[in-house]
């Protein structure tokens, strides 16, 4: 699906999402509120400016959400006094659904992080981490954060965007990777044909959507034939409070030991 098709399926009543220099930003009516949309389009590499622009939009959404929470409390009191006076149910604007905050959707078709001397000189690690922290803060503040990968993504750009959401969905044909196989071959000094053969049976290192699903990094693959809005709403409704990615990786076989190792370490730490 193209970005335009995705946005039409997410926001059948229209939206205000735009793309500039490969960066996605805007919002649209979603459930009973207004979802914030950020992302990267067109296989664009994510550099220092892009990371900060996306983080800016996320922090704005958090601030608006904090305001809405205060407003929601006020609205709640108003509704309560309205109820006592035998009046109507009051006004629900400002609240979303059952008091949940507006979702933040992260749409990704990116390259890796922008690889340059200038980006590293300016602290790309801080800028990418800052974007991820903004998304993690939004999550803590009660905003459902949902990633949707519909094209490529790799390495630092993938970690700072899609992988920093609570729930990561993908569309068929998406192509997340850490590094492409020819580059892996170059670095590992292994023949490409051997790697391609190994990739068929070993999801832990090979690029591609199926392998990222098996690892647990991608929670679900959506059906492009059905409205995306409903599928995303269902993912938000089902989202677990804790990080379930290692559990998914164990169940799906893509990360056979991570969950057990993490649990063993945690158990030792808790034995006191």
């Amino acid at each position: 699906m193209t970005l335009a098709e995705i946005l039409a399926s997410l926001f059948p009543d229209g939206h205000a999402v735009r793309v500039a220099d490969g960066l996605i930003g805007g919002d649209g009516p979603f459930a009973e509120g207004q979802a914030t949309v950020i992302g990267v389009d067109g296989d664009t590499a994510l550099g220092v400016e892009g990371a900060l622009a996306l983080a800016r939009a996320v922090l704005d959404a958090v601030r608006v959400g904090d305001g809405a929470r205060s407003a929601d409390v006020d609205a709640g009191s108003a509704r309560e006094s309205a109820r006592k006076q035998g009046l109507g149910a009051g006004d629900d604007r400002g609240a979303v659904g059952n008091g949940a905050k507006a979702p933040i959707l992260v749409l990704v078709d990116s390259d890796s992080q922008r690889m340059s001397r200038r980006d590293e000189l300016l602290g790309l690690n801080e800028c990418l981490a800052h974007l991820a922290k903004a998304l993690l803060l939004a999550d803590q503040a009660g905003h459902p954060t949902v990633g949707l990968i519909y094209g490529h993504s790799a390495a630092g750009a993938f970690i700072a965007t899609a992988l920093a959401t609570r729930v990561l969905a993908a569309l068929p044909g998406a192509d997340p990777s850490v590094m492409d196989l020819p580059s892996v071959a170059r670095v590992t000094k292994l023949p490409l044909d051997k790697l391609q053969e190994m990739a068929k049976s070993t999801p832990v290192f090979a690029p591609g959507l199926d392998n990222m699903v098996a690892t647990g990094a991608v929670h679900a693959v959506l059906d492009p034939g059905k409205p995306l809005a409903g599928q995303i709403r269902a993912l938000i409704a089902e989202a677990a409070a804790e990080d379930v990615r290692d559990r998914l990786g164990a169940a799906r076989g893509g990360r056979p030991v991570a969950q057990a190792v993490a649990e063993a370490v945690a158990a030792a730490a808790l034995r006191g």
């Binding site: 993938f158 590094m179 290192f205 090979a206 690029p207």
Partner: peptide
């Protein structure tokens, strides 16, 4: 790189846990 998908996912998990 030999365990790239597991490593990448673990980095995301670590950042979430640190936050």
């Amino acid at each position: 790189l030999q365990e790239a998908n597991a490593g990448e996912t673990a980095i995301a998990e670590a950042m979430r846990a640190i936050a």
